[in-house]
Design a protein around this nucleic acid. Structure first.
Length: 920
RNA sequence: GGGCGCUUAGCUCAGUUGGUUCAGAGCACCUGCCUUACAAGCAGGGGGUCACAGGUUCGAAUCCUGUAGCGCCCACCA
């Protein structure tokens, strides 16, 4: 195996390796170099190349705490779809944040050889070229497969770069590369020696299209409309007959018995007699077994041990013959006697006709039943008796179950532990051999005439030695035959967190010791059994330790109609087109906005649009700040706030508040909530209020230098908090805000520290009052139809003197946000005649509107307020009037209600007074 | 057949320990604004019996029981 995953770069994906440090232009109001709209594609390739060139993605073991994530390896020949987009966006957000927190973040990328899927694709491709797989030798076929893999392999990894994935590309692995291949073989041998792996004749799930055995997990049961055929079987040596119901009449040809319930009076007399199978005229015994449900069908069961799991078991119990009537491709074999060479479903049609002709088809009933389909080929699964390799699971499952149930491994959302435990408690042996060529070949070597004698060995040499030892014969190399089959893909994937660090071959190497156990696995619940559960088992089996601490299950990406996005439906947007249209950042935000853990994502491009708009908002916020820079002046963003400025104190508090909340969200894997918080902080708080407040007093003037530097300081922190979600834009802004050294990237900057002491609740509260007052004025402007430019004289009547001082100090804010002519704060103010008024938080505000006011409208406004307040007050008073409440509720709750009551009462009084002044 | 989950504004969904205007957010919608960062924008606004029926409690979107509808997982009923 000499396959290197050197990324092959398709033309459309060439990354621009050109990088130049951007210098901020301090050209006042010269916006020629800053377009009004943010253009993501310019920035994205540039910054990705920058990150890669500076080795920011690469991790080496060191003294820091590791944060390791292994990618769920996509199929090597796959292309990026929306599911990958979501999966990898989430991983990237987690990894980027961990990196900024100072952890040694290591995200290991790679691809999966996807045995059955890839082989199917290669077979299909060869068929188009007129080559049948059966015409090729194993080696010839593998050559084609490798060629295909090299041609298509790694495209998906290139595409992940477009998304911004901060994978450690130096660590890219492939499940079929030599080291991993070897590890899988070692694993097989080890489990064999420990007694977990055995070879046996079992009823397995056969895929007649792929011509291979499958595990139980690869069978999908679907409910379908079927026909239940009632067929008459004659009793030998009598005129009597029994009617038997079956959904698969073609298998009549392989019947070797008829079974009834031992206590079924209708059929008791038949037990021990002989029945003649229709068509083939074979005489088979009538047996009794409690398995039969007398209520179902006719209460009489035909037994086909070779083609049904239950029938096989019944056959075993009663010593029935086993007649296998199908070839491996599902066509009828010689053993079927009739319809030889016909497909199973064709044979079914024909036998129904023939039975009808012979008068043995009694009736046909429409029913709904479950039929198993191959997960990969969608072929109807044929239960088939076959010699396969199995892995015994019960003991392996024990620690895997225990450590999830006791919280050592946490699932997010937690509800999936139920599904997991249910499966683990009922786990069955795993069929691990596949009749394919693309995969790790089973290291079993047969000698002698049959398949009974074999040894397990890694190499032919070793096998020969062992075989000689075991047989006591001087065997030659030619007498050894290696098993033709390969291992289930998942038999290599379950080692992924170990083998990417070479932990099978060198269990104590520095890397595995440092990076393992990994931290978070991000995947879909669909593959919980295929992969997650098995990785946990392998973790304990081979390292005595969990493979990861947390599993984040995300949902399926669906379209607006809740249909799963798929190629065949054609309802899946091309991720690269989305990135081209909305930017990688916009697309990432769109994916995360509506995607709490565990929930399906109803994808809508409107969400990406929102993400793109957000990019533009940030871009323009930066554009505005840069407009205010003096030419030839250098600016150093500052996190020293002006303690005199309410705007600064408030913004500082909001920042710390948000960091605290985001950290909590991240700890609980609520990524969308963390995103929404930083989104709102930037848009609603920083842009809509903070920037508005620091705008220059006069047109044409610039924001004073220190104030601008503080704004830039805030902006930098905001960009850091946003970086895990929108890596490209934030990096772009980061470098534009100030000239930086080549290695000073936001992606390796420090995540803001959450400090509860920096949350100044007084300032938050005061600013909230100011906001409400400003909004009240704006409401009056809107409702009265007053132009926002119309100068207003503003009088505030605060509820107390402390607030009076504070509001007086905030005059500049009111003036900045409102077209205030005069501004008065007076505890003893009385309302001017023709004025609009509002009550905010116990304080009043008046706007004289001589000539502008519509008294009737104003009355309506006030009356509406009164009605609302009254409603609120009565509900509070009702509560307080209830003795049960005041006696039983905690003191502070009652106290709160009392406060509400007095506040509302006061407000109501004021409003009534205002209304009275307006006259009736 | 067994298990798990969901039902909150037109749509998609938050709502943690039952108690702060808790009935919210985004989108959509309505009104007014091209206010020199941003119309991909700004300001203002309307909209919900929290699926239904009971119960526990001073108090329920939140806890319990039942009903209906929907979804998912598991299972060998011909």
């Amino acid at each position: 195996m000499d396959f290197s995953l050197e990324p092959r770069t398709p033309g459309c994906l060439i990354l621009t390796p050109i990088f130049c440090i951007l210098h901020m232009k301090n050209t006042k109001n010269d916006l020629t170099d800053l377009p009004k709209q943010y253009n993501p594609s310019d920035a994205e390739d540039k910054w990705y190349a920058y990150w890669e060139e500076n080795g920011f993605f690469h991790s080496e073991p060191d003294g820091r705490e590791p944060y390791t994530v292994v990618i769920p390896p996509p199929n090597v020949t796959g292309v990026l779809h929306m599911g990958h987009m979501l999966n990898n966006t989430i991983q990237d957000v987690l990894v980027r944040r961990a990196r900024m927190q100072g952890k040694n973040a290591c995200w290991v990328p790679g691809t999966d050889h996807a045995s059955i899927a890839t082989e199917a694709k290669v077979v299909q491709k060869l068929r188009k070229e007129g080559i049948k797989k059966s015409d090729l030798s194993r080696d010839e076929f593998l050559e084609h497969a490798w060629a295909w893999t090299e041609e298509h392999g790694g495209i998906i990894l290139q595409q992940l770069r477009k998304l911004g994935a901060s994978c450690d590309w130096d660590r890219t692995r492939f499940t079929l590369e030599e080291e991993l291949y070897d590890s899988v073989i070692d694993c097989f041998i080890d489990l064999y020696e420990r007694g977990y792996i055995y070879r046996g004749l079992r009823m397995i799930n056969w895929d007649p299209q792929a011509k291979t055995a499958l595990s139980d997990e690869e069978v999908i049961h679907k409910e379908v409309q079927s026909k239940l055929y009632h067929v008459e079987y004659n009793i030998a040596g009598s005129d009597e007959s029994v009617t038997i119901a079956t959904t698969r009449p073609e298998t009549i040809l392989a019947d070797t018995g008829v079974c009834v319930h031992p206590e079924d009076e209708r059929y008791r007399h038949l037990i021990g007699k002989t029945v003649i199978i229709p068509m083939v005229e074979r005489e088979v015994p009538v047996i009794a077994d409690k398995y039969v449900d007398p209520e179902y069908g006719t209460g009489c069961l035909k037994v086909t041990p070779a083609h049904d799991v239950n029938d096989y078991e019944i056959g075993q119990r009663h010593g029935l013959d086993v007649i296998d009537m199908f070839h491996e491709d599902g066509t009828v074999s010689e053993a079927g006697i009739f319809y030889i060479g016909e497909d199973r479903f064709e044979a079914r049609k024909r036998i129904v006709k023939d039975l009808e002709k012979s008068g043995q088809l009694v009736r046909v009933e429409e029913i709904r039943n479950k039929v198993g389909y191959s997960e990969r080929t969608d072929a109807v699964i044929e239960p088939r008796l076959s010699l396969q390799w199995f892995c015994r699971m019960k003991e392996l499952a024990e620690p895997a179950l225990e450590n999830v149930m006791n919280g050592n491994i946490r699932f997010h959302p937690e509800k999936f532990t139920n599904t997991y435990s249910h499966w683990m408690e009922n786990i069955r042996d795993w069929c691990i051999s596949r009749q394919l060529w693309w995969g790790q070949r089973i290291p079993a070597w047969y000698f002698g005439d049959g398949d009974d004698e074999y040894v397990i060995a890694k190499t032919a040499e070793e096998a020969l030695r062992k075989a000689r030892e075991k047989s006591g014969r001087e065997l030659t190399k030619d007498e050894l035959r290696q098993d033709e089959d390969v291992l289930d893909t998942w038999f290599s994937s379950w080692l992924w967190p170990i083998t990417v660090f070479n932990g099978m071959k060198e269990p104590d190497n520095e890397e595995i010791s440092y990076y393992y156990p990994t931290q978070t696995l991000v995947t879909a619940p669909e593959i919980m059994f295929f992969w997650v559960a098995r990785m946990i088992m392998a973790g304990y089996a081979f390292r005595g330790e969990k493979p990861f601490s947390d599993v984040y299950y995300h949902g399926i990406v669906r379209d607006e109609k809740r249909r799963k996005m798929s190629k065949s439906l054609g309802n899946s947007p091309d991720p690269l087109e989305l990135i081209a249209r909305y930017g990688a950042d916009g697309t990432r935000v769109g994916m995360l906005f509506s995607s709490p853990a565990g929930n399906d994502l109803l994808f809508d491009t409107a969400l990406c649009e929102q993400g793109r708009n957000f990019s533009n908002k940030i871009w323009n916020a930066f554009r505005f700040l840069s407009m205010n820079m003096e030419e030839d002046e250098s600016y150093t963003p500052s996190r020293e706030i002006d303690p005199e400025s309410l705007a600064d104190r408030w913004m500082e508090s909001r920042l710390h508040q948000t960091v605290l909340a985001m950290d909590r969200d991240f700890d609980r894997y609520r990524l969308n909530e963390a995103l929404q918080k930083i989104y709102s902080l930037i848009w609603d708080d920083f842009c809509d209020w903070y920037i508005e407040m620091i705008k220059p007093e006069e047109q044409g003037a610039n924001i004073p230098k220190q104030r601008l530097e503080r704004a830039l300081g805030f902006f930098e922190s905001l960009m850091k908090l946003l970086h895990p979600f929108m890596p490209f834009l934030t990096e772009e802004i980061w470098h534009r805000i100030r000239n930086r050294s080549k290695t000073d990237a936001i992606m390796v900057s420090e995540w803001p520290k959450a400090d509860p002491d920096s949350v100044d609740t007084d300032s938050l509260e005061l600013f909230r009052t100011v906001q409400q007052m400003v909004s009240a004025v704006r409401n009056i402007q809107a409702e009265m139809g007053i132009s926002p430019k119309q100068t207003l004289n503003l009088t505030l009547k605060p509820k107390n003197s402390i607030l009076a001082d504070k509001l007086a100090g905030a005059e500049w804010i009111f003036r900045k946000l409102l077209p205030a002519g005069s501004f008065t704060v007076d505890e003893a103010a009385s309302k001017p005649g023709a004025a609009a008024a509002a009550v905010v938080d116990g304080s009043e505000l008046y706007i004289p509107l001589e000539g502008l006011i519509d008294l009737e409208k104003e009355r309506e406004r006030i009356q509406k307020e009164i009605d609302n307040t009254k409603g609120f007050l009565t509900s509070v008073e009702k509560k307080l009037g209830n003795r049960q409440f005041t006696d039983n509720a905690p003191e502070d709750v009652v106290e709160r209600e009392r406060n509400k009551q007095s506040d509302a009462t006061a407000k109501l009084e004021k409003l009534n007074a205002l209304l009275a002044e307006l006259g009736v």
